Structure formats: C-alpha cells, structure tokens
Simulated assay, not measured.
Amino acid sequence: LMFHISSGSYRVLDIDYAYQSITLHDPHMSTCETIVLGGKGNGFEAEDWRAPYFNPTSDNVFMLIGCSPKSPIFQGFPEKKLPCHNISGMSCEEYMSCPAWDTVGYRQPSLSSGSGPAMCCAVGFESVKAINLSKLECEGYSSAYNLAPLKLRGPSDWAYGIRVKYELQGSDAFCRACVATSGTCGYESVDSGGLRHVCICDHHNSTTNCDSVDRPTGASSTIP
C-alpha cells in the first residue's frame, strides 16, 4: 500500500486505527544502519488542504543532516538557542552514535562538521511545518518515533519511519455505522480537491455503509 502527497510517495508500514495514525516509509531516509545524503529524501510536506488533519505526531522526531549555515532552520535564533532539541527522548547526540556514521566520516563526541552549525539537528514537525530538504538546504534526514512509555536504550532500538496522525471530522459515527455492516472505514478524494468518508465493502464502496447500494464514482479510495 502506497501513500502519495506533494512531497513524494511513501510505503505504508502500519495503520493504527485505535490511535488514528499511519506509519510511512521513505526509501531515501537515513536510519541507524544507513546514512543517505545528497538531498534525495522526500521529507514530509502535505498539501495545504490536507495539512489541517494530516501531520506527523508530536512523538516523531526529524533529524536534519548536513544543513547549510544559511538554512532557514538556523535563521533568527541566537547561536546558543537553536531550534534543535530532544524530541520524545530521542536526540542527535544519541543518533550520531549509530555505526552508519562511520561510513560518512562523522562520529561522536563532535556533532559539528567544523565551525558551522551542528551536523545533525533534531526538530519536531510543529517547529518547521514542512520537511523539505531543498528549502531547508539539508543533505538528508532521519525520522523516528517512540511509542514506549520508557526511554529506549539507544538509536538502534528506535522505530524509524514517519508516524502521521490523521483526523476527519465526524468520522466516529460514520465508521461505527460502516464497521457494523462489515465494512472498513476509509476516505476518498473528490474532484473539488477535498476528501469525503467512504465505507470500503467486499464488492463496492459506499458513502454510507455496506448495506447501502450507494456507490461513489470517479475517485480513488484510501484506508486511513
């Protein structure tokens, strides 16, 4: 299952209906085993109409790698008060202890590639609103999230991916009616550029429930 937004295409790793979230995989995202540079990563940037109800969760950390001193990330902040910080118990200090950093020539204890800004800057999505490597002038990025109530032992135990929270107004009542008729709650795009609820049934989709003969047409369905 693939998910497509303005910043790129992502493989869906997991759908958590209880917490209304999905986990996405970007093949050009760095992990603890692989560092990907060259600005190849998709990052994460949703369309304006999608952004109000589809954003990375607060426990998701984006670690921006090799950003230019002129990057918007570092503009408007005193040198000792950069926006880089620990997110949900995960930090660049820990991330740069990963063995993959040996392959690119950077290791702890120094996070800086010289006199410029830190080689790695950990930020939450709310502080930047969009992870666009070209606009942020960064060479790469990693994304991880932490669902455990306890602090993980290290970056090798982190869950890598982009965990995104979705929200559709009025979805609870619609989904209950859909599931009660053996359907799967989802949504579909419409010609006007927005979304509407859809009940995904065995042999058809419906805008009400699987007992209805109503079948939406001309749009592609997605399980949230």
Results as ranks from 00 to 15, higher is better:
P52F: 09
P52D: 04
P52Q: 07
P52H: 10
P52L: 04
Y53D: 08
F54V: 00
F54D: 00
F54N: 03
N55H: 10
N55W: 14
N55K: 15
N55Q: 15
P56R: 07
P56N: 11
P56W: 10
P56F: 12
P56G: 08
T57Q: 11
T57K: 14
T57G: 09
T57S: 12
S58D: 12
S58K: 06
S58E: 11
D59I: 01
D59A: 07
D59T: 02
V61R: 00
V61L: 05
V61T: 04
V61D: 00
V61H: 00
F62T: 01
F62P: 01
F62R: 08
F62K: 03
F62Q: 00
M63A: 11
M63P: 02
M63E: 08
L64N: 01
L64F: 01
L64D: 00
L64G: 02
L64P: 01
L64K: 02
I65V: 09
I65D: 05
G66N: 01
G66A: 11
G66Q: 01
C67I: 04
C67E: 00
C67K: 01
C67D: 00
S68R: 08
S68K: 10
S68Y: 09
S68P: 00
P69N: 07
P69K: 13
P69E: 12
K70I: 11
K70V: 08
K70M: 15
S71N: 06
S71F: 10
S71I: 05
S71V: 09
S71E: 11
S71L: 10
P72W: 12
P72S: 09
P72K: 03
I73K: 05
I73T: 09
F74A: 03
F74Y: 15
F74K: 02
F74N: 05
Q75D: 09
Q75M: 14
Q75Y: 08
Q75N: 10
G76T: 00
G76Y: 02
G76D: 03
G76A: 07
G76S: 04
F77N: 09
F77G: 03
F77R: 07
F77Q: 07
E79K: 15
E79M: 13
E79L: 15
K80Y: 15
K80P: 04
K80Q: 14
K80R: 14
K80C: 14
K81D: 12
L82E: 03
L82D: 09
L82N: 03
L82C: 08
L82H: 02
P83Q: 06
P83F: 06
P83R: 06
P83L: 05
P83K: 04
C84P: 00
C84L: 08
C84I: 06
C84W: 06
